[in-house]
Amino acid sequence: MTLLKAYLRGLREGWFVLGYTLCVCLSVFILAPFLMIALRSVGKGWFGKLWLPPQLTWDWYRWAIEVGNIPEVMKNTLIIGVIAVAVSTVIGIFAGWAFGRRQLPGKELLMAIVLLPRMIPPITYALGVAKIFYTLELVDTHLGVALAHVSVCAPFAILVLSATFEGLDERVLEAASVCGANTVKRFFYVVLPLIMPGILASMLFSFTHSYNEFTLTLLTYGPNTVTLPVRTYLAVGDGYWEITSAMAVIMVVPSLAILAMIQRRAKPEKLVGGFKGV
C-alpha cells in the first residue's frame, strides 16, 4: 500500500517535473531566436562551428543607421503609427459608445460586419486597397499608409472600447447628474476618467498592430514611406544578415517596451480576442 502511495506521489512529481521542463523548453524556443539576432548584430567573423562570435563590434549598427537610413524610417513608422492610432481610436470611441451604451437593432450583426476584416486574410483586400490608393494618389503618403493600417487597427479599437463602455455603470452617471453636473462636465469629470484605461489599452493594441503591420504596408509603401518592417524585409532580400539583425534589434526594442506596458496595464486576452460572439 505504501509502495502504491509512493508510486503515485512519484507519478505526480514526475508530472510536475515534466510540466516544468515544458515551460523551460518553451522559453528557449521563444527566446533563442532573439538571442541569435542580438549576438549576430554585434558579432564579427562568426563562421563555422562556434557557439559565440569571436569578436564584438558596433559596426553593423553604424551601417544599419547610415546605409539603412534608420532614423528616417523610424520617423515614418512613428508618424504612420500615430495617425493610424488617432483615427482608429476616434472610430473606436464613437462606435464603442454606440455598441456599448445605446439601443441598437441588429447589434450582433453590425458587430460581426465591423469585425469582418479580421476574418479575411489581409492580402485579399490589400490588393483592392492598393488599387484604390493608386487612383487616389494616396500611395507613398503617410496618410495613405496610415489609412491602410486603420483597416486592421479599427476593429481592435472598436472591440476593446465597446467592452469598456459596456462596463460603465449607469448609476455613477446618474449620481453625477443628481449632484448637478451638466452633460459636458459629466463627460470630462466622470466618463473620461472611467474609460481612460480602455482608451489606453486600445491605443496600445492599435499601435502594436500598426507597428507590426507588413502586408498592407508592402502594397502601399513608396520610397518616402518605408517603415521598419518593410526596411527589414528589403534588407533580408539584400542578404546582409548582420545588418539585418542590427535593424531587427532596433525594431524589437519598442515592441518589448509595449509588451511590458501591456503586461502591466491590460489583459493579454484582449490582444487575441474578438471571436467570442461570432
Binding site: 518553451l26 522559453s27 521563444i30 527566446l31 533563442a32 531566436p33 532573439f34 541569435m36 539576432i37 549576430r40 502594436t208 507597428y211 507590426n212 507588413f214 521598419l228 518592417p229 527589414t232 524585409y233 533580408v236 544578415w241 539585418t244 539583425s245 531587427a248 525594431m251 524589437v252 515592441s255 518589448l256 509595449i258 509588451l259 501591456i262 503586461q263 493579454p268 490582444l271 487575441v272
Partner: peptide, 21 residues
C-alpha cells in the same frame, strides 16, 4: 510573458531569428 511575446513582436523579426537559430 513568454507566451505573449510572439504576439507583440513583428512576425518578420521572429522569422529572421528562427532562420538564424
Amino acid at each position: 510573458l513568454m507566451v505573449i511575446v510572439p504576439l507583440v513582436v513583428p512576425g518578420l523579426i521572429g522569422a529572421l531569428g528562427l532562420l538564424l537559430f
